[in-house]
Computed example of a mutant assay.
Amino acid sequence: MTDDLRTRLANPDDPVLCAGGYLFELERRGYLTAGSFVPEVALEHPEVLKQVYREFVRAGSDVIEAFTYNAHREKMRLIGKEELLEPLNRSALRTAREVAAEGWDRPPLVAGNISNTNIYDPEDPATADQVRAMYTEMVGWAKEEGVDFILAETLYYRGEAEIAMEVIRDADLPAVITFGVFADGRLRDGDDPATAAAALEAAGADVVGLNCFRGPATMLPYLEAIRAAVSIPVAGLAVPYRTSPNEPTFFNMHDHCCSVHLEEGRTFPTDLEPFLCNRHEVADYARRARAIGVDYLGLCCGNAPHYMRALAEAVGRTPPASRYSPEMDKHFLFGTDPSLKRHNRDFADKA
């Protein structure tokens, strides 16, 4: 029997690793529309979604996030396919369970996933009722499909996060709650992330933290503040982009070297490639996050299996994908294997 989330989190020396980032990965592969970002792939190409789930587990993820991010009633209304809401959710959940049951040495947990609704408005009480109804149906389907816990992610209002927590608690499931923090460093209803995280701990969350928007450099200080504010496990899922104090989120990044016109001068979401971290930076993020006490660790939008493997290896894991980790000692120019041809090795500095 698979250990549950709380059992895995009870070992402070062994973090739970979680691969997010399905949204960008499936857009790159040509199975998801940037902008609306609705996971229609769960219905249209479930075999592709299963392969992405599988690749992230092979790379070291302890969790399969059932890809229901943005699969809520408001997004489905926006693309005119509200009647597909439940079938899409159930397909994403079932394919996640199928991959989790594929005979892994360490079976992954399956997380039901709810996300920012983009309709919540603290000045309009009616929107709170709409959000609660949307979350209730999604969490209900996730529970029926046998998830291990619920991840409520990229929540940029404390009030919306508190609604998510109420719904998850009513369903009697473990809860991971993560905020998305915009450039000003606060949630949109005014709280700093650490204060909001403490409030969600008091409301019953099992894990609180941050995901998305911010890369390692601009997320780590906020994770450190959250770690100091709460006693429960902390989650940190940065985006693998080189954000900076001047451009603290991937919404703010400008490519000053690009000679091709970008729409409205904005690189998000389809022109962010120049800002990607390398694998060593991802590994460094993993080590620094662990050093400040992040217990639920991963990457969000922009993630890919090679990044996840680097993160897993940085915390001492050897996932199945490590079978194919780089072996540069065998490279014909830059290797050190004594059987390599000397005239090629001597030429390396001129390559």
Rank of each mutant, 00 (worst) to 15 (best):
R214S: 02
R323I: 14
P15H: 01
R287I: 13
Y296S: 09
I79F: 07
A198S: 11
N118G: 08
L84C: 03
L311P: 01
W104C: 02
L155K: 05
E145W: 13
A291N: 07
A34W: 03
Y285V: 05
T154G: 04
E44C: 01
T336V: 08
D121K: 04
Y285Q: 06
F179A: 10
N118Q: 08
E145I: 12
R94I: 11
L23V: 11
F275P: 12
P107A: 12
F250K: 03
V315E: 09
G190A: 05
A171E: 06
E201V: 01
A34P: 07
G180S: 07
R317Q: 15
A197D: 10
A128K: 11
N211E: 02
D129S: 12
F251G: 07
V48F: 07
F56R: 07
G112V: 00
H256M: 11
A100F: 06
A291Q: 06
N11T: 12
V239E: 02
E44S: 07
A291S: 10
L340P: 15
G80A: 10
A183L: 06
S339H: 14
K143Y: 13
D4V: 06
D13N: 12
P269K: 05
R106L: 01
R6N: 08
H343M: 14
A66M: 05
L272F: 02
T127W: 02
D255T: 01
H343V: 15
T270S: 08
W141S: 03
L78R: 13
K50R: 15
Y157A: 11
T267L: 05
S339L: 15
A238Y: 03
A42Y: 05
S259P: 04
P107I: 04
S231F: 05
G140F: 03
H280N: 10
V99M: 02
S231D: 14
E102L: 06
D172Q: 10
S339M: 12
D14L: 04
R345M: 15
R28E: 15
R58Y: 14
G298Q: 02
R214T: 09
E162A: 14
A126C: 03
